[in-house]
């Protein structure tokens, strides 16, 4: 087990800087997710931790080992890591057992390889499939093989690249909970990459939201959702309503109604700004910003209304008895001020 310290990590492909001075410290035994849209540099960062890409600058420490830094580059096979690829990368020419014993055999641990592999397979509930070949397994089973293979040699850090994206919705949730329970029981440090916020919030201790090659915010799932550092993070995590507004002393004013709101990084002190809030943090009632209901959607437990305010649509949850065309007022309980 080990912590991972990344400082001022840079990766350039020609003139294109994909990762731009990224800092991250993942604690021993912690699950940290790199979350961001495609092209934000998250997979490149993970591959640099794995040693599959050579950084253009900065350092990566895995435990006490300087894995890469100026003049130093430890090849992937010398880093003692486990990794599950998005494609699972289960070797098609080997049986399940051969796949899982491979990391032990290349380490020269032939004697107990089969025993440890069987234990690892049991921990992912694949007993009895040792002799199968990958093409005889379902996608979910192949992923379990990949997970067993990644964990069998007791890696210092487990790396997961979009681990759940190839599974169907039901299996995804099941696997997510199972992976979390398994890695917490073992206590291994985990870094994983995803563009799916639900996956990120459900699996991680802390989430690093990445955009444009740097980490915008590193926080617990709750902190991220409730206290986004800036508009990029707020927009990427959860649903967000945004209204053109005028900055006031304690928040922002829309259509002459002053709403209390906390400013994020980069928000102006005066003039034009954006008032942002989540649907569940607003109510429909007699007081607040005036608007008109333009659409109504049943979401099961709640009803979500589309309300037009000043020509701009927002989503608000409300009581069941309102109808399209009703004039309403939107009362915002918790809001943010963003730069416009």
């Amino acid at each position: 087990m080990a912590d991972v310290r990344i400082t001022q990590l840079v990766k350039r492909y020609g003139d294109n800087e994909v990762v731009r001075g990224l800092d991250l410290h993942v604690q021993d035994g912690e699950i940290v997710c790199l979350l961001g849209p495609s092209g934000c540099g998250k997979t490149t960062t993970l591959r640099m931790v794995a040693g599959l890409e050579t950084p253009s600058g900065g350092t990566v420490h895995i435990g006490d080992q300087l894995a890469s830094g100026p003049g130093t580059f430890v090849p992937p096979e010398k880093r003692q890591l486990g990794m599950v690829f998005q494609s699972y990368a289960v070797w098609p020419h080997m049986t399940v057992l051969d796949n899982v014993t491979f990391p032990l055999k290349v380490a020269g641990r032939d004697a107990d390889a089969a025993d440890l592999a069987r234990k690892a397979l049991a921990s992912v509930k694949l007993e009895g499939l040792e002799a199968r070949y990958p093409h005889q397994l379902s996608g979910g089973q192949q992923q379990r093989v990949a997970l067993a293979r990644a964990l069998v040699a007791e890696p210092r850090v487990l790396l997961l690249d979009e681990p759940l994206s190839n599974l169907d919705a039901r299996l995804r949730e099941e696997m997510r909970d199972e992976i979390r329970a398994l890695v917490k029981r073992i206590g291994v440090t985990v870094i994983f990459v995803t563009h799916d916020q639900e996956e990120a919030l459900g699996l991680s201790d802390r989430v690093a939201v990445m955009e444009r090659g740097v980490i915008q915010q590193l926080d617990t799932p709750e902190g991220l959702y409730e206290r986004p550092a800036n508009g990029l993070v707020a927009r990427f995590v959860g649903t967000l309503n945004e209204l053109r507004a005028e900055r006031t002393l304690h928040g922002a004013a829309v259509a002459g109604v002053d709403v209390a709101a906390s400013p994020t990084t980069g928000a102006p002190d005066s003039g034009a700004c954006v008032l942002a809030f989540r649907p569940e943090n607003a109510r429909l009632g007699e007081a607040g910003i005036p608007g008109e209901i333009v659409a109504k959607a049943y979401l099961g437990p709640t009803v979500r209304y589309r309300v037009r305010i000043d020509g701009q649509p927002v989503l608000v949850d409300g009581p069941r008895n309102l109808a399209v065309g009703d004039a309403v007022h939107v009362a915002v309980d918790r809001a943010l001020v963003l730069a416009s």
Binding site: A50, G51, L52, P75, P76, E77, K78, R79, Q80, L81, G82, M83, F85, Q86, S87, A89, W91, P92, F102, P103, V106, A107, A146, R149, A150, A153, L159
Partner: peptide, 22 residues
Amino acid sequence: DASLEEQARIAGAGWGTTMAKI
């Protein structure tokens, strides 16, 4: 997929072993 080979490196196999076994 290149990840089949990368996986072997992560699993601790050097370049030669990866070429020979994977």
